[in-house]
Design a protein around this nucleic acid. Structure first.
Lengths: 203, 203
DNA sequence: GTCTATAGCCAGATAGAC
DNA sequence: GTCTATCTGGCTATAGAC
């Protein structure tokens, strides 16, 4: 498997991923994707027919990388505490390597509300039910302070994802270089989990 | 001041705001802004010269609505606890009325890193210094649990802003209608402040 | 200030040779 | 499968009448 064994189709998808994540659907240019992939522009259409189709291929691939991690929080028999620690650590590690992904996903979901309907109706889309039961039981048994499952869920996502979506803004406020900011993010792997657990635990 | 007294220039800015916030710079069309403002397309150029200039006018207006609220957190002599409650309440109230604003700002900051440099160098851009001192002192005096000012700051922003940036995604996960989601956001006004304070307070 | 008409460009998509 | 050349439409921007 040398570099030359990578097919044109794969090269296109990789390049398209890079360009779409940076520029979004509207800002991306087919020519730029072709240049990035070092192939001819008309090959894009040969393999993917249209910009829209290529975009959808990229979007689905991206979304399918994120959904499973969230699903582990919502649908697994692990303890609440473990889930929070695990998700914060794994998610941040993954995102440091793919910093544009969350922004890309959220951006395009905001622009195309129909995408959401499509995603929800897919079989793999995670349900809140188990998590709601888990939180309700934990509150009832006095294991954690009273909180609604949805609110806790939003908080977990917010604390882990926001630092990537708002990176340029935060970098401006706290006045850090890109390298320093990665250290700030690394600190959050454990810090965020502690912050959440501290907030819900019974003294 | 009847509706007819609104000048063309004002109508353009309002329309541009709506279109840019929904579609972003790259996705917005001058024709759509003209239609939205119910004026002739060439008037856009008469008043604002170019799409870029019109966009910058909209962006600066939008950003200047958000910065002061954050500045209150960073640079005022209020107690930490009060700041958190106050910001969570005010910010969420404001954002429920302008739900596209955070997404628009973050989106364009990600696309145009130069914007950030420009904003930072402006005189009104808030500094972290006072807030850092306040948190360091509070930790030293054992008033709150040990936490870095930057991390707390990120957490405050994340918990308050993320629910708006990621609205379509969250609505999908927790399976709510738009109206129900507003109730979830209303709950957060007090809920988020409590969540944060619970996490940093000494038992 | 406001309109119509159009210049000029650029991007997505296709035709057709190899 | 991969290339060059080109069509077609849409978009920003401007010229110029009123």
């Amino acid at each position: 498997m040398t570099a030359k064994n990578i097919t044109a189709e794969e090269k296109i998808l990789t390049a398209a991923k890079r360009v779409f994540e940076n520029k979004g659907m509207a800002g991306a240019r087919m020519q730029e994707i072709a240049d990035e992939a070092k192939i001819n522009k008309s090959l894009l259409h040969y393999y993917y027919r249209s910009k829209q189709k290529l975009f959808e291929a990229v979007f689905k691939t991206a979304f399918n990388k994120l959904a499973p991690q969230i699903n582990t929080v919502l649908n697994s028999d692990l303890s609440i505490c473990y889930k929070i620690k695990n998700f914060s650590d794994n998610y941040t590690t993954f995102m440091i390597r793919h910093p544009y992904l969350p922004n890309f996903i959220l951006q395009e979901l905001n622009r195309n509300p129909d995408f959401v309907k499509e995603l929800i109706s897919s079989k793999t889309f995670p349900s809140m039910k188990n998590f709601q039961n888990q939180i309700r039981d934990a509150v009832k048994e006095n294991k954690i302070r009273p909180i609604k499952a949805e609110q806790l869920f939003i908080n977990i996502l917010a604390l882990n994802i926001f630092p990537f979506v708002a990176a340029p803004l935060i970098k401006g406020f706290i006045n850090t270089t890109d390298i320093e900011y990665i250290k700030v993010l690394e600190e959050r792997k454990a810090g965020v989990a502690n912050f959440i657990i501290q907030s819900i635990k019974i003294n």
